[in-house]
């Protein structure tokens, strides 16, 4: 069985079979990463460019490690240190890079739909979306799913809560698509100003504004970062107030009377959406998520590279 797509633009475009294939392949790569030599030669004939038009720590390092551990050659591009500042368009930049025989593009961009635009103009090159604006961050949702499976077994029937800045979160949207496709139940919680009505309607999804009730319902809570850099209007009065109403604290976790799994896609705003003792506690799988990110991205790149050559 192969992927039904030649790009990874979003979870929206994947079938449940695609998601299962990526997750089961990632399982094998996770084992590879435990070996004395954490590297396989599968992609040694492939060159990958990491195009980062927006800042990133985890995702960029994770992709680069994944590429290197598959034996691929990698080039790193960050918009701030490039000719983008001289006015070169996205398509021109990418075409210039591809003319130097680059096979795959991993791209993060602040504009939603930027990777879709590239895929339309460059159908023969595999495009991997590493986060586009407020649209999707598919590899994050895949590694979240992988981490849930690893800790709690199957995704089917699991109750997953997404807390916080749903409106500006590409992680939230990708997670909603994925969890729905894989038969998990999803609930949203956060201030009403950060939970757009259209998401609730589009996905027929439950929203619970009382965080304690929401936590009581769920098996897994994925706590999202407050994205101050994307908020151009006042959506809640202060970070302090946000923390009091929607911050996940150890006191709150103890009060719900059951053990739930705590996740966060990073970077963490300690003391805002999550308190330090929760982020570093035993229920937290935040660092496992980061670890699993490499295996999941290896699986995505490996499977997509398999498609490219056969086209």
């Amino acid at each position: 069985m192969q992927l039904s797509t030649n790009h990874l633009l979003g979870i929206k475009e994947l079938s449940p079979q695609d998601i299962s294939l990526i997750l089961s392949t990632a399982q094998q790569f996770k084992e590879v990463l435990q070996r004395p030599v954490k590297k396989v030669p599968s992609l040694r004939d492939i060159t990958i460019v990491n195009l980062f038009y927006e800042n990133s720590t985890r995702t960029r390092i994770s992709f680069e490690l994944a590429e290197k551990r598959l034996g691929a050659d990698t080039i790193n591009f960050s918009a701030s240190a490039s000719s983008v500042s001289k006015g070169e368009t996205l398509l021109d930049t990418v075409n210039n890079i591809l003319s130097m025989k680059v096979d795959m593009v991993v791209m993060r961009h602040s504009a939603s739909g930027a990777p879709h635009f590239l895929a339309r103009h460059l159908p023969g090159t595999a495009i991997v979306n590493a986060g586009d604006g407020i649209n999707e961050h598919p590899t994050q949702a895949l590694l979240d799913a992988f981490s849930i499976q690893e800790r709690a077994g199957s995704l089917e029937g699991k109750k997953v809560l997404l807390v916080g800045d749903i409106m500006h979160s590409r992680v939230a949207l990708s997670n909603i698509y994925l969890l729905k496709k894989m038969g998990a139940e999803v609930m949203l919680s956060g201030p009403p100003t950060l939970i757009p009505v259209y998401i609730k309607q589009a996905f027929d999804i439950r929203v619970e504004y009382d965080l304690k009730k929401a936590l009581e319902w769920c098996d897994v809570a994925n706590i999202l970062r407050i994205q101050l850099e994307r908020q151009n209007q006042v959506l809640f009065s202060s970070l302090r107030e946000y923390n009091l109403s929607y911050g996940v604290t150890s006191k709150l976790l103890r009060s719900i009377g059951k053990e739930i799994i705590i996740m966060h896609p990073g970077p963490i705003n300690r003391g805002v959406e999550i308190d330090s003792d929760v982020a570093d506690g035993t229920q937290s799988i935040i660092l496992q998520q980061v670890e699993n990110g490499v295996a999941v991205r290896m699986a995505v790149l490996y499977l997509l590279a398999g498609q490219t050559i056969m086209m």
Binding site: M1, Q2, L21, S24, T25, Q27, Q28, F29, E31, V32, V40, P41, S42, D45, L70, Y302, A305, G306, I309, M310
Partner: peptide, 16 residues
């Protein structure tokens, strides 16, 4: 992951 025909034929990875 070590095959020499990874670009010709698709193979599903198995457990090690």
């Amino acid at each position: 992951f070590y095959r020499d025909d990874v670009r010709q034929e698709f193979h599903t990875a198995n457990k090690t």
